[in-house]
């Protein structure tokens, strides 16, 4: 069965199709036994899942759990700010200390990011296949540029681990 039909059957089950498309898929289910079987399977899997999540209890007493939260809230309030988001830590390390304008610009740019003024159409999906690196991204709306920064937190690197920065620039 073609992938498109499989996904259409799913979308039909989930009520995500327009009425016209839904009618077409319904008609297909009527005449196509394979489509009907797949639709039934997805329907039954979905029905099995609904309302059948395992109940879990937090493995800490009410008092202990609350004490942790209360302590953290007090800490944050004493600090006077919310905990620094990753982009602020990145700025602290990589922004030029002399450029007050640069810092101000950074705050404007990143403030826009933080306020979700960036269109979700421009969001990216990032995959970090290596265990020893981490990455984060930020976007400048004014420069229409997204920067994905790869950081290697460990100072010592294994010999067989590639360092994308090492000797890339010769």
């Amino acid at each position: 069965m073609k992938e498109e039909l499989q996904l259409d059957l799913q979308a039909y089950l989930d009520g995500e199709l327009s009425s016209k498309d839904a009618r077409e898929v319904a008609a297909r289910i009527e005449i196509d036994p394979e489509a009907r079987a797949l639709h039934t399977q997805m329907q039954q899997t979905s029905a099995l899942l609904k309302g059948n999540e395992v109940d879990r209890r937090l493995p800490q007493t009410r008092e202990f759990f609350w004490s942790q939260i209360e302590r953290q809230i007090s800490r944050e309030e004493q600090r006077g700010t919310t905990s620094a988001p990753w982009w602020l830590e990145f700025l602290r390390r990589h922004v030029g200390a002399v450029s007050g304008v640069g810092v101000a610009a950074a705050l404007v740019i990143l403030g826009a990011v933080q306020l979700n003024l960036v269109s979700s159409d421009l969001l990216e999906e990032i995959d970090n296949p290596l265990d020893e690196t981490t990455s984060f991204s930020f976007r400048s709306e004014s420069q229409k540029m997204t920067v994905v920064w790869i950081a290697n937190p460990s100072s010592k690197k294994a010999e067989d681990e590639p360092d994308p920065g090492e000797e890339i620039v010769q």
Binding site: D121, L122, L123, E124, E125, I126, D127, N128, P129, L130, T133, S135, S137, Q143, K144, M145, T146, V147, V148, W149, I150, A151, N152, P162, D163, P164, G165, E166, I168, V169
Partner: peptide, 29 residues
Amino acid sequence: KLYGQGKMTQRVDKPLPKDETLAIGGDDK
């Protein structure tokens, strides 16, 4: 997909319309 010394180090899926730039970066020596 970015490869360093033969190994994939990063993969980014991103809308890249006209005037948009993607930069992948990292520290060097």
